[in-house]
């Protein structure tokens, strides 16, 4: 047995979170049901946030929890529920595709692992090294001022920060917000298929009404199909 006093608890928690992250990532690939995939993805990304906390990147970890897990994935699950009609909850993949993906994935993993183990300095960390919390310097860097040790070697003692990328990302997010709202708006265009559907229905019903009925029906239908499963 290992003496308990010799255990590095940081490593123990690392392996806990790493196993959760990797296991759930593999489960995302293996799962057939799309809602379960979403659950495993949440667990995987949450465990990764734990890894970020362990690596001293508290702000990135909290950001991961807030934006990725709390925002993006809720959005994703929302999308899953809007489209979760019985035939789409679990779309089967052909066994050949699975084998092919397994082979390619294994090859890719081998390459990545080989490069991960290739640098000996990466494998032997210094024990008990302490880093300072980085939230305040990171915030100042995003506002354009670097106050961390990286600025020491730069000319003038100060390196420029990330003000411009920060602003670009802000505008980018705004544009994406508007664009996504425009793309996903409820109005339905007259595609050939929609016209065909409308023509096959009773004459007074408009296409828009059909769209509304179709959406309601899809939600109800998914529930009923879930009940029949």
């Amino acid at each position: 047995m290992i003496p308990l006093a010799a255990i590095d608890w940081h490593s123990v928690f690392f392996f806990l979170f790493a196993a959760l992250a990797c296991g759930c990532a593999v489960a995302v690939v293996a799962a057939e049901n799309v809602v379960r995939m979403a659950l495993y993805l949440v667990l995987s990304l949450g465990a990764t946030a734990g890894l970020f906390f362990l690596a001293g990147a508290e702000f990135v970890g909290a950001m991961q929890l807030m934006i990725y897990v709390g925002g993006t994935l809720v959005l994703l699950v929302f999308g899953v529920m809007l489209t979760a009609q019985a035939p789409f909850v679990s779309i089967k993949t052909a066994p050949g595709d699975r084998v092919l993906a397994g082979v390619i994935g294994a090859a890719l993993l081998a390459v990545l692992l080989q490069s991960a183990f290739s640098v000996p300095e990466w494998r032997k960390p210094a024990a008990g090294r302490d880093g300072e919390p980085a939230a305040t310097p990171l915030g100042m860097a995003l506002l354009g001022t670097r106050v961390d040790e990286a600025s020491a070697g730069a000319p003038g003692g100060v390196r420029s920060g990330y003000l411009l990328p920060f602003e670009i990302v802000s505008v980018h997010l705004l544009v994406v917000l508007v664009g996504a709202a425009y793309l996903a708006r409820a109005k339905r265009r007259r595609t050939p298929r929609a016209i065909e559907v409308a023509a096959s229905m009773e004459p007074p019903a408009t296409v828009a009404a059909h769209a509304a009925v179709g959406r309601e029906g899809s939600r109800g239908g998914s529930v009923l199909a879930g009940g029949a499963r």
């Binding site: 590095d8 790493a18 990764t48 692992l113 991960a116």
Partner: peptide
């Protein structure tokens, strides 16, 4: 369990996540 984790440990986790993602996309 007794040695501190290094960059390699994180790289392995990253590699597994990346590969799982690629396989998932495929």
């Amino acid at each position: 369990l007794t040695e501190p984790v290094g960059v390699t440990h994180y790289l392995v986790v990253g590699a597994i996540l990346f590969t799982a993602g690629v396989a998932c996309m495929a």
